[in-house]
Design a protein around this nucleic acid. Structure first.
Lengths: 196, 196
DNA sequence: GAGGTTCCATACGCGACCGTATGGTCCGAC
DNA sequence: GTCGGACCATACGGTCGCGTATGGAACCTC
């Protein structure tokens, strides 16, 4: 009379995904083995088979998140040849990433955690470098491209924060939000040199 | 042979300040009674005399922080009559608030906490409303003033986030940082109507 | 300097979570 | 079908933090 009949067996990736989901809900503190096991309808026995300990899970989840949040986004954007179009697509793409945003905001509280800090740093640097590169392709010289990238990334990050903490100050509809972002991109492109 | 000789007796404010300090270091999870007691070189006995429980401490600390981070800053800025000067002073003032920033970033992870969410919401709304008011004083009509305020506040928030996570992408010196902010304010004021 | 109030120390029970140990179950290979 | 490795369940000991209870120290007042 056992009636186990578990769903399927779990992989390390299942645990990492569950960890990311928990991270978005309750921050790093919510990435706890026993609660996750309950949520996955299994036990710690499974977890400690796949991972050495909790820190290993955190690292795996963060790497997974970093990959999905940067490399893949950039690779997707890069299919477009025109830099201006890329900038618009980038900001449009990046507005809709609900879970990624929640995770990122959660991680800010743990910026000094040895596994978290480097990931946030890499992501920040890659974002600014990539956007600066796009402004470079548009025709700005390096320093100016970097400054504009900084403002562009900042406005994106700040927008994300406001969306999470004080959504009432943001435009109500997606269309208006995109229009605001679009006009911001226009402003950042103002005075562009090159063949226009 | 007791030799207690404690420093001085503590007040509720001492505990609230310690809580804010811990909040900046390790997020909401670090606001824990026993560690704080150790840090203050006292015991839980003191804490539970001044506060009903941990949540009460959190609320007290948040109110203290909200007061210092908004009301006082705005009151200070308002001593200047010229709106453009106010905008510049505001952004300049707001760049240096190290501890406040760390606390705010830490709190983003706990935006769904019943005591945290409302505070973040109020702060966000007040900031945008106040900056929008300044743009209104400069001469923009309400909707445009709100849009520009949104971008201004976003760029400030994003800048703060980058400073904490990827400082290497920001200008290295204070002077350069201020110059960047200054040119951003200029850009946000571009096209201003009124007597110029 | 006695007595009451304010403030703090200590001890306790409780729950949550970590990590380990150990035995059990599933599953493909042969 | 059975055997071995991959995978999971369960039980345990340990740590940390919460909140309570209760006695004691410090201070103030008269």
């Amino acid at each position: 009379m056992v009636m186990t009949q578990r769903g399927t067996r779990l992989s390390a990736e299942d645990w990492a995904d569950a960890a990311l989901e928990a991270l978005g809900r309750g921050g790093l503190a919510a990435v706890a083995v026993e609660p996750l096991a309950t949520r996955l309808d299994t036990t710690k026995g499974s977890f400690y088979w796949h991972f050495r300990n909790r820190d290993a899970l955190i690292e795996a989840a963060l790497l997974r998140w970093e990959e999905r949040g940067t490399t893949q986004v950039i690779a997707d954007i890069e299919t477009d040849p025109d830099p201006v179009a890329k900038l618009r697509r980038l900001f449009a793409t990046v507005i809709g990433h609900g879970l990624t945003h929640r995770i990122e905001l959660s991680l800010l509280a743990s910026a000094d955690h040895p596994a978290v800090g480097p990931v946030l740093r890499r992501i920040g640097e890659r974002r600014v470098a990539y956007v600066a590169q796009l402004f470079g392709e548009v025709g700005f010289e390096a320093a100016e491209a970097h400054r504009r990238a900084l403002i562009g990334v900042s406005v994106y990050l700040g927008n994300t924060q406001l969306a999470s903490t004080a959504p009432s100050v943001l435009p109500a509809t997606d269309a208006e939000r995109l229009a605001l972002i679009s006009s911001t991109v226009d402003a950042l492109l103002a005075g562009a040199p090159g063949p226009f």
